[in-house]
């Protein structure tokens, strides 16, 4: 009932682990499939060399239903991740490699490396807001987004997914640019730029001062973005941003998403959130008289 496909990636359930969550080690990614029930997993964003990331605090809880985080793209570098991908694949679900770079050349090198290590697809991080000239530095400009997607697409044979930020004046324009450049799918959205100040000290809490807001509080914005993008592009859209329940996931799909990523929801519902949400989705589909999850994609249009 929940089987679906994104480009050539076959999913048992449309629920995918979002990048940056529990993705530091292969054993963890494997556990999120075998124990958690994820349909696919996205690794931590990987670059050409190890990065320690920002100073702590890296995460602060927003009492109103979210997290503000600024890990700072901490990662061991893609070459150190070869074994982790091998282990992650043992979970039996597609492994999607998240890629960031400080130049087109770096994006290409990491994407090609991960393809060699056997990932099912790469998700280009065009969205991370907290580290200089990478991530959102590209995703905030439709021309740069176009160039980086095109460059990677010409360099690998596996599907290329573009992950976008909503911290732009018009996310649809960027999405169309990525489609024109040949991307196979679009993930929307990443955490929204945000900040927390502690009133007892008058100091910003995060080590990086500003971070990205994720969780249930950003879901309505994410649903709106998916809806607008799906209306204008033909490639599949992967919804991301605060999905925590079956109802949330169904809402994303009705807005036009072919799959839904889950991240912060693990905080409240644990690693098995993927199993729980799958079950809730099935109940909603049955209630609506649907036989397959594909039937609901984009029906809100």
């Amino acid at each position: 009932m929940l089987k679906t496909e994104i480009s050539s990636i076959k999913l048992k359930t449309p629920l995918i682990l979002a990048s940056g969550i529990l993705g530091t080690a292969g054993t963890s990614l494997k556990r999120i499939v075998t124990m958690g029930g994820a349909g696919a997993i996205v690794t931590k964003s990987l670059g050409i060399s190890p990065r320690s990331g920002h100073k702590s605090p890296t995460i602060v809880k927003e009492e109103k239903g979210g997290l503000i985080s600024a890990i700072g793209l901490a990662n061991p570098g893609y070459e150190n991740f070869k074994d982790e991908i091998e282990i992650a694949k043992q979970g039996g679900a597609p492994v999607i490699g998240s890629v960031y770079g400080f130049s087109f050349r770096e994006y290409i090198e990491v994407a090609q490396g991960l393809e060699d290590y056997g990932v099912a697809a790469v998700e280009l991080n065009l969205s991370y807001p907290n580290v200089g000239k990478t991530g959102a530095f590209y995703g905030k400009h439709k021309e740069l987004s176009f160039e980086v997607v095109k460059a990677v697409k010409e360099s690998v044979g596996i599907p290329v997914i573009a992950k976008l930020t909503a911290n732009v004046s018009d996310i649809v324009t960027v999405a169309k640019s990525c489609e024109d450049a040949g991307c196979d799918a679009i993930t929307a959205i990443t955490a929204l730029e945000a900040m927390k100040i502690n009133v007892d000290t008058g100091r910003p809490v995060l080590g990086n001062k500003v971070g990205g807001l994720s969780g249930p509080c950003i879901k309505p914005i994410a649903v709106r973005c998916v809806y607008e993008i799906a209306k204008e592009v033909d490639v599949p859209v992967i919804g991301c941003g605060g999905a925590t329940t079956g109802e949330d996931a169904v809402e994303f799909m009705m807005a036009g998403a072919s799959a839904v990523q889950i991240g912060t929801g693990i905080l409240t519902r644990g690693i098995t959130i993927f199993k729980k949400v799958s079950k809730e989705m099935e109940e909603i589909l049955k209630r609506g008289g649907y036989k397959n999850v594909g039937e609901i994609i984009g029906i809100a249009h």
């Binding site: 940056g20 969550i21 890296t58 985080s69 991240g263």
Partner: peptide
């Protein structure tokens, strides 16, 4: 890093 089981470090 996060202390709450979400970042995976």
């Amino acid at each position: 890093k996060c202390g709450i089981g979400i970042c995976g470090h």
